[in-house]
Design a protein around this nucleic acid. Sequence first.
DNA 1: TCTGGGGTCCTAGGACCC
DNA 2: TCTGGGGTCCTAGGACCC
Length: 427
Amino acid sequence: MAAIALVDCNNFYCSCEQLFAARLHDKPLVVLSNNDGCVIARNDQAKSLSIAMGAPLFKIWDTLEEQQVEWLSSNYELYGDLSQRVMATLADFTPDIEYYSIDEAFLGLTPTRQQTLTDLGRAIQQRVKRHVGIPVSVGIAETKTLAKIATYHAKRSKTKTQGVLDLTASPYLELALAKTPVEEVWGVGWRYAEMLGRHGIQTALDLRNAPDDFIRQQMSVVGLRTVHELRGIRCLPLELVNATRKSITVSRSFGSAVTTLEDLRAALALYVSRAAEKLRKEDLVAGVLTTFIETNRFRPTPQYNGSLTLDIAPFSNLTPELQALTLQALAAIYRPGYQYKRTGVLLTNLVPAQTVTRRLWEDERNEQLRQVMSAMDAINAKFGRDTVRWGAFARQGLWPTKFGRRSPRYTTRWTELMTVGSLAEPR
DNA sequence: TCTGGGGTCCTAGGACCC
DNA sequence: TCTGGGGTCCTAGGACCC
């Protein structure tokens, strides 16, 4: 049976930024969420300054100043493009690959007479570094959950492991488990960690040795799978094919609070268009649409969360139809007098477009709409997002997402290519 | 002033059916 | 009258992930 390797890009967003900006090398760096709200990525230097993941920017200003920490807004276009390059490089090693997240993939690896698993891990690491420029860590084990733990230690003991750790048939497996706090185990979040702690379960080793019925009762079958995986019993197979997804969400927080129905309409019209684009891109239609509006839960102002779920009949991926529906929902849930912070749409009951029964009436109009949609998608693909849009809504609302310091999209926009002559960074 | 966005899975409980 | 057992489907909420 092949071993499972987890390849994990080190501090991915920060590494992407540092790849293109010489001035960021050897400096503490953080990347921020939308609206520059909070920290979503840190490099090693920033981590050693105890800047927490998720820390809101306004609370860490002093540290950033004093320690001369560089900070950047997020640049998802850049990260997405580099991620694809990393994944393409990994796919050269084996067809048994699961694209788990933007910066992680699971691989099925089989050692050969010439190459041990550790050798393979190093080869992967070196090729990704050479071809793409991103540093990765590789953890190898019998199960996904153990591979996660191997990667955790590969990253933390860099001098010993050089970023590659094979725990299959390893005398160090128990030690590794004993040195893994239980909250670091994949599938154990802070709530379970707290509960387990109360029962004296502090490490991955403790969890591995916990009785099945206790785990089943406290953590459901999901937790039991985790425990079995820690014992080396494979419960979570590699998911090689990209399963069709089950939902699509598009939501944003506003840069500043919004109160009027008009602004919410404009925002939702845009978000639902984005969601419909995603549907069409994946050749899906949706059967259910949820629309929601929220106030800011961190503020002492009056709170209101409104949401309404409506059936889409017949199933659709056409922007005009979904837009009409979400605006109808909004009208029903909108309450004046609140400071809204966030709004969005959620599409569920997704099925392949072909499986839906053809519409018996309105067929001509629908065919026309479909053609308009694909023309819009083609134009937007060529000339940039929102070149053409559906509906008469303000192009920019009063609620632009803030990107105070977004780096250039070096690899996906011709106008933002790095200039070699001067090494100037476009601003 | 200032706290992201996008996902998955499981369970309990209610509605409804025979 | 007012009661059992068994089943399905749906939804809300909780837990987790990156």
